[in-house]
Nucleic acid binder design. Structure first.
Length: 337
DNA sequence: TATCGACGCCAC
DNA sequence: AAACGTGGCGTCGATA
């Protein structure tokens, strides 16, 4: 259509994905925004509105997922038929889908989330004083990062700091961070250098993790569960780099997965001891557990659920940071957040 | 009719 | 040229 294309794609075709269309929309191409709007609604209808109603079990009147305990390399669960671990929440219209998950009359849904668990685990595992201190004080971690890196906190620096924090967890690269922040790779590299300077444990963690994986072939979670990386010494640069990023992430994501599994294993026995054996644990969404229970039991159950989750690393692992839990209730899943 | 790869997008 | 981790699943077109 006369617009110069930014290449992409392994088939050589021009990409029309979200980032490309957002760029065009920002350059005054009206149809780009229209396509994005249409795509969002088409996605919500086909993947959620239509598919979830078709998945209702006629015997129970409910949607039942299947969990795989070996679905993810890192030890996370995966969910299929239907996947209930990717129900929309970020946009207002998407959140309407989540609100369609409702409790039975007289009951509520209770959602309990680990707050920033992977960043907390990174602070512990990499032994980063500034991050551990921030979590101990209950500070806004992205704001703290912004202040450390840029010397002040505003909307923009906090957003950048949040992106950088996530990039660290995922195995950072100057190109990936540059793309995300919309800056050249050398500027992204300068930010990475700055991050390592302010949080020196991170660079050490990355270095030691990679050295260990190259030597032994696997990484370990805090509980000793291994993930193997057979391509960590590949001669293929892209393959090797991909393995390195996964190897940096696996101990963090994997430890988080271990912790919530421990919480799940202890949850119902602990609730039963408190006379709350009728509480139903419905869903796990990586750092979140969803329960259904009589409205009148929520006040009694919430602190027990919180304690089981907060203490789930112990006694075998003693963390230097507290595990924060956010709990909400509502007549539907959307309002429980 | 079933399966696969590419593309795109939802979640954490 | 170049996407930073873990997944599942929709549509489309090609193929069996």
């Amino acid at each position: 259509m006369g617009h110069k294309g930014g290449k992409k794609g392994k088939s050589g075709q021009y990409s029309t994905d979200q980032s490309v269309l957002e760029g065009l929309a920002g350059s005054g191409v009206p149809i780009a925004g229209k396509v994005l709007d249409w795509r969002q609604l088409a996605k919500l209808k086909s993947t959620y509105t239509d598919a979830l109603q078709a998945a209702i079990n006629p015997n129970t009147g409910r949607v039942h997922t299947s969990y795989s305990l070996v679905g993810a390399q890192t030890g996370r669960l995966s969910s299929t038929d239907p996947n209930l671990q990717n129900i929309p929440i970020r946009t207002e219209i998407g959140r309407e889908i989540r609100k369609a998950f409702v409790a039975e009359p007289g009951n509520v849904l209770l959602a309990a989330d680990y707050s920033q668990i992977e960043l907390r685990l990174a602070a512990h595992m990499a032994d980063v004083p500034a991050l551990k201190e921030a979590f101990a004080r209950g500070e806004d971690i992205h704001a703290r990062t912004a202040n450390e890196m840029f010397g002040h906190v505003d909307r923009d620096t906090r957003a950048r700091a949040k992106t950088i924090n996530f990039a660290i967890l995922y195995g950072i690269s100057r190109w990936g961070l540059g793309t995300r922040l919309g800056v050249p790779a050398d500027e992204a590299q300068a930010m990475i250098d700055r991050y390592f300077e302010r949080f020196p444990g991170i660079q050490r963690y990355i270095h030691e993790t990679l050295e260990s994986v190259r030597e032994r072939g696997y990484s370990e979670t805090l509980f000793g569960r291994k993930t193997w990386f057979p391509r960590i010494r590949s001669a293929n640069q892209a393959e090797r780099a991909g393995s390195e990023r996964a190897a940096i992430n696996a101990p963090i994501q994997g430890t988080s997965a271990d912790i919530i599994k421990r919480a799940m294993a202890r949850m119902m026995p602990t609730l039963r001891e408190a006379g709350l054996g009728h509480v139903r644990m419905l869903l796990q969404v990586h750092d979140e557990l969803v329960f259904e229970l009589p409205e009148g039991d929520a006040a009694a159950a919430a602190p027990i659920i919180e304690r089981v989750m907060a203490e789930a690393a112990g006694p075998s692992v003693k963390l230097d940071v507290p595990l924060g839990i956010e709990i909400g209730t509502g007549s539907n899943w959307g309002d429980a957040h």
